[in-house]
């Protein structure tokens, strides 16, 4: 079965109310074409899970500017004014999470783990309402897994089986988010025939990938 689909089909997989893991960091390594198509279509009430909400007119920030998101889970929103404005006027619910914790929560969801135990956030507002677990005399916060309906991933190269290779720091959150959604859709610069990628170089094995969208 071919994993290659066109942009319109990719967009049709994302419904209003969907939760979406967005790979990328400050718009580097993000599926910008798919995001642009989502903006054009106007799919509403999305839950966005992302490291940072990028910029008002670049990366995932465009979806917030266009008021298509009603919930954000992120570690940083300081580069995107629209996120802060909508958070302050109450139209956007924002959960701020330490970056390392957020990524481990996503990895946990993709790995079948019931959560992670971490010292990050102990003694801060991050710990409020969370269970503290003592292991061998040390306290840890229990942080639960975060998965989603869809993961939108950006890769540099893929083979037709969905094995992925990234480019430099555009790798960022992509390999982790690719693990943790019901459907993983990858925007990719170049798709090569099976056998052309060296198995030693593959960062995300195709088992995590459902669809490839040629850029």
């Amino acid at each position: 079965m071919s994993k290659i689909i066109q942009l319109e089909q990719a967009i049709s997989l994302i419904n209003s109310g969907s939760s979406v893991l967005f790979g990328g960091f400050l718009s580097v390594g993000c599926a910008e074409r798919i995001i642009d198509a989502l903006v054009k279509k106007g799919t509403k009430d999305l839950t966005m899970i992302v490291i940072a909400t990028d910029y008002d007119n670049k990366g995932v920030g465009k979806l917030i500017t266009n008021r298509q998101v009603n919930k954000v889970i992120a570690s940083h929103i300081g580069t995107n004014k629209a996120t802060q404005t909508q958070m302050n006027d109450g139209s956007l619910k924002v959960t701020l999470t330490p970056q390392g914790t957020l990524l481990e929560q996503i990895r946990a969801a993709g790995s079948g783990l019931g959560g992670v135990l971490t010292e990050t956030g102990l003694g801060t507002v991050v710990a409020e309402g969370k269970q503290i677990v003592n292991v061998d005399g040390r306290d840890y916060l229990l942080e639960k897994p975060i998965g989603a309906d869809i993961a939108l991933i950006k890769a540099y190269k893929a083979d037709e089986k969905g094995n992925l290779v990234y480019s430099k720091t555009a790798r960022n959150s992509n390999p982790i988010m690719a693990m943790a959604a019901k459907k993983t859709i990858v925007e990719v610069d170049e798709i090569v025939p099976v056998g052309e990628l060296d198995p030693e170089q593959i960062i995300t094995p195709g088992v995590f990938v459902d669809y490839l969208v040629p850029a």
Partner: peptide, 25 residues
């Protein structure tokens, strides 16, 4: 040795990014 460097309530809430992880780890 306590540190506050990520928000000013009511004014500036950029998010902690990786600061909490870095300071703890």
């Amino acid at each position: 040795g306590n540190l506050a460097n990520w928000m000013i309530p009511g004014k500036l809430v950029p998010g902690m990014g990786g600061a909490m992880d870095l300071v703890t780890g």
